[in-house]
Design a protein around this nucleic acid. Structure first.
Lengths: 342, 342
DNA sequence: TATTTTTACGCAACCGATTGCAATTGTTGT
DNA sequence: ACAACAATTGCAATCGGTTGCGTAAAAATA
């Protein structure tokens, strides 16, 4: 038990007086190996504590059965659910998942992409960093036939797989919901990001919903944020509450922002939802904790993860280098809870 | 740009009429290679889009500069902060981090451990799954001289590095704080886990604090949970509120549980902190969102991550197989906020 | 029994970077 | 100008599975 050397197929081969090729094949139930030998090899491998060296296999076969996941952070509920979905699907097909965080930094994203490529992952699933404006660092995957799937925060003009929600429609639905609840002066927070156009899309839905209901779009009610953080949300909320007349509703494109607005309102003695109705986005766990419970838009994170992983695996299986890099759209729904009730 | 083959040092060697050994050395500034050659090689490598194949290097050198992180889930704030700490330290020494989730399942933990070993990680940082009772699947690391550090949820009798907080003292401090705030009938939630003895330790601290302040320990005030979830917290809280006389304080060994208690109290019209004071554990982000703000015990997640990674890296550097597998204790503090105020 | 077809296994090259040692070129001293 | 030594670079084995092809043995057919 106290050896200090990895057990290899050579060790097994020597012990059983067989060739390493036989061991290798036996371990994966190759049909040219007799059942008797297979059983014997497996038993011995087990006894000797053999664990295959994936580096060697990956080097030789140039495939590692590993899916690289490159996301801004694992802490956002949406993203950790995404991971969860990826893992569930990957595990079914015996793929390993390795996770790397860009921390929304372009530089880190470039480094981690290189690292994933360096590790010869079989496929890559990525949600872009906020900072990222240029996607040249993903060419190494595309050029080498490594399937690449962007999820949620996707580049606009990159011919590869994408799994997204229809942010325009979601924004429209959210705003329409507030209108139906009686709001006539609805504010909106947004964030500028040229590549990940999802905030722009949500904003577009917001504007279109207002127009469709004959509500004038007022620039002062639309606040552009630098970052989607609690602090920025508080700042923006205060700015909104300082307006007169005050807005009577808010569509926040993220639950953290929505929560910050609710809490800022409470601090200022503004009653939610009586005086100010709020709807968020994502259905983060926190939306059910905060008082009043937050209305929100569902974001099918786990499903998106599963879809992305399935695309990778399917693509790897067929290995047809078909140029049809389709975009997968998943549905969202309005979850009407307390914070937006009439 | 449309090649379909990875660029290798052989390609560079051919282009420059040099040996692969020279390329290899030049790329890592080996002193036996002239500056002129180094410059030339690096420039060409850059031009050709060379990215080293870590599989090949790892296979040959039997070291991958990769730290495997095996934790229950990435979604818990404590654990994602832990990861963050690990990454910061790893990056400084140019190590790659790969993250795997056991989902608190023993079986998955065993599989992922095998996978990490199979990938020949240089070191392993692990926080045990709730289900885990047996740690034999970690022997493969210990036996092969792969540094192994357990963090937070650690096995009691395993001779390896451990990074933990003093859960006993933390529990003592939390309880003492409630007593100082005037509580005389303090409830406690706990969870049974033989290996990860941290809940037991906190409970021990709770009991000792009561004793030291001449408060009788009452069994009915201590509720044993199956799982540390919001739902179980609600159930337990209701049970506590049904008691008469009702407890006037609660030390919950996790913020989720504390939050569930606060919300259950609110639902039943029990005023927090006036009638019922609560202190949680971990200082999760949610503790600052909930109203009233939650008093809690800090859990230095990022520091623990950094410490664990440093141990791995230091151990790998010295490669002295010293048998001193010390246990690192980090400090915790009482964070007195609204939910426990007099 | 001789011959063809299966079945089962062995041989050896290969993946790409690393490294001990040998070989070559360049420098310095006498 | 030549030996002695230092500075560079090349050769070839190595890490551990994988796989195309070849071959011996067993089974099927003539």
């Amino acid at each position: 038990m106290e050896e200090n050397k990895h057990v290899t197929i050579y060790d097994i081969a020597e012990r059983l007086n067989l060739a390493t090729s036989t061991i290798s094949r036996a371990l994966k139930d190759h049909h040219t190996i007799s059942d008797k030998t297979i059983k014997k090899v497996k038993k011995t491998a087990e006894e000797m504590g053999f664990v295959p060296n994936t580096l060697a296999a990956g080097l030789r076969g140039n495939k590692t059965r590993t899916i690289g996941v490159l996301i801004p952070t694992v802490t956002q509920p949406f993203l950790s659910s995404l991971i969860s979905g990826i893992e569930i699907t990957a595990q079914k097909s015996d793929y390993t998942v390795i996770i790397m965080q860009s921390h929304d930094s372009y530089e880190e994203e470039v480094n981690m992409a290189k690292s994933l490529y360096s590790n010869r992952v079989s496929g890559v699933i990525c949600s872009l960093a906020m900072e990222t404006r240029d996607t040249a660092h993903f060419h190494q995957f595309s050029n080498n036939n490594i399937p690449l799937v962007f999820v949620d925060r996707v580049p606009k003009d990159y011919n590869t797989f994408r799994v997204v929600i229809d942010n325009y429609t979601a924004g429209y639905k959210a705003t329409k919901h507030l209108i139906e609840q009686g709001c006539i002066r609805i504010a909106h927070l947004t964030a500028g990001s040229e590549l990940g156009n999802l905030y722009n899309e949500r904003k577009r839905g917001y504007i279109e919903a207002l127009k469709d209901h004959n509500i004038t779009v007022e620039e002062e009610l639309i606040i552009n944020l630098n970052s989607v953080t609690y602090e920025d949300g508080v700042k923006a909320s205060n700015a909104l509450f300082d307006l007169k007349p005050m807005p009577d509703g808010l569509f926040a494109p993220g639950d953290i922002l929505a929560v910050s607005a609710v809490q800022t309102a409470k601090k200022r003695g503004i009653k939610v939802p009586e005086e100010f109705k709020v709807i968020g986005f994502n259905n983060d766990p926190i939306s059910q904790i905060i008082d009043p419970n937050l209305s929100t838009i569902t974001h099918p994170a786990e499903k998106m993860g599963k879809a992305a992983a399935e695309i990778i695996i399917k693509n790897l299986k067929s290995s047809k280098n078909d140029d049809a890099k389709e975009i997968t759209f998943l549905n969202t729904e309005v979850l009407a809870r307390e914070s937006s009730q009439k």
